[in-house]
Simulated assay, not measured.
Amino acid sequence: MGDTDTPDFNKARGFLIGFSVVVLMLWFFGADMTRFKLLGNEVYLRENVLHVWGVIGLSNFYLWLRFFQRIPKRGLRFDEQMHTLLDECLITVCRLRDKGKAFKAAALDAESDGDKLVKLKMTGYLPYRTQLEEEKDRGEYAPTGPWDYRFPNRARVEFTLTRTINSEGRVGFSHGGSGHESNPSKTLYRATVLYVFVKGAIVHSWFTDNIWPLLIGGVATVLALTNWLKINHFFLG
């Protein structure tokens, strides 16, 4: 039982999830809390039976608190994997939103040279990544990662354009020239972050490592304490 108070993050998470799942099962199936098995022996409770759920709730809260205290720095914020996913989604969203506008502008440029634009390829990147690389040697004032950038700089996307041109009946490629800058609105940015949160919770471990244990532990604690309050008639339920 000494390992219950371990400073190890993974063990703290394991104890919280394991105990919380048991609490949720006891609550869901309406278990008889006056008797249970301990080390293979049947144990019957005779005193303070009305406070069993209170003890369980406080125990679960202790495990929740110990896990919370051991979450790594910035553990509750997007990690590098989640920010990379956000970068990809921002590029895709901005490309879909601005493709028609960029094509129209490129087509007008081509017409001014007597050519016809056949196809336009947009390759996006986020300028803050370049800034992050350039400023990494600033010592204590240097940004430590994408999490140090905020809207609107965090959301700005620049596209390099590759044009397929029909010039005098011959089709060729045109690189460089004017690119295209996209600045999504705060509403669109927040919607993209929300989408990334949901998708990232499925495809990456950040959510299940840091957020999910807090949620399941919090729910189990609240349910246990609510049961205790109901049993002791602190409020009608």
Rank of each mutant, 00 (worst) to 15 (best):
163 R>V: 01
203 V>H: 04
146 P>E: 09
171 V>I: 15
111 E>L: 14
123 T>Q: 09
164 T>G: 12
84 T>Y: 10
180 H>I: 02
208 T>L: 11
96 L>H: 09
110 A>E: 14
170 R>T: 10
74 R>W: 09
159 F>H: 04
128 Y>S: 02
109 D>M: 08
172 G>D: 09
113 D>T: 11
129 R>N: 05
113 D>W: 14
168 E>L: 09
190 R>Y: 07
115 D>P: 05
96 L>F: 07
65 L>W: 13
142 A>V: 01
104 K>Y: 08
76 L>N: 05
188 L>P: 00
205 S>K: 12
179 G>T: 02
86 L>A: 00
181 E>H: 03
187 T>Q: 12
110 A>H: 02
130 T>W: 06
111 E>H: 08
83 H>Q: 06
172 G>Q: 07
131 Q>Y: 07
104 K>M: 06
78 F>H: 07
135 E>C: 06
71 I>C: 03
80 E>S: 10
121 K>G: 06
124 G>C: 02
79 D>I: 02
65 L>K: 08
190 R>V: 14
73 K>S: 14
129 R>G: 02
102 A>P: 07
206 W>K: 08
67 F>H: 02
128 Y>L: 11
162 T>V: 15
174 S>I: 06
146 P>H: 10
207 F>E: 00
98 D>A: 03
186 K>E: 14
135 E>D: 13
78 F>G: 04
169 G>I: 05
152 P>R: 04
171 V>Y: 09
129 R>V: 10
157 V>G: 03
70 R>I: 04
152 P>M: 05
107 A>S: 14
71 I>M: 05
120 L>D: 00
211 I>W: 09
154 R>A: 14
70 R>G: 00
119 K>I: 06
124 G>W: 01
69 Q>D: 09
139 G>H: 00
149 Y>F: 15
158 E>A: 13
150 R>K: 11
207 F>S: 01
110 A>W: 06
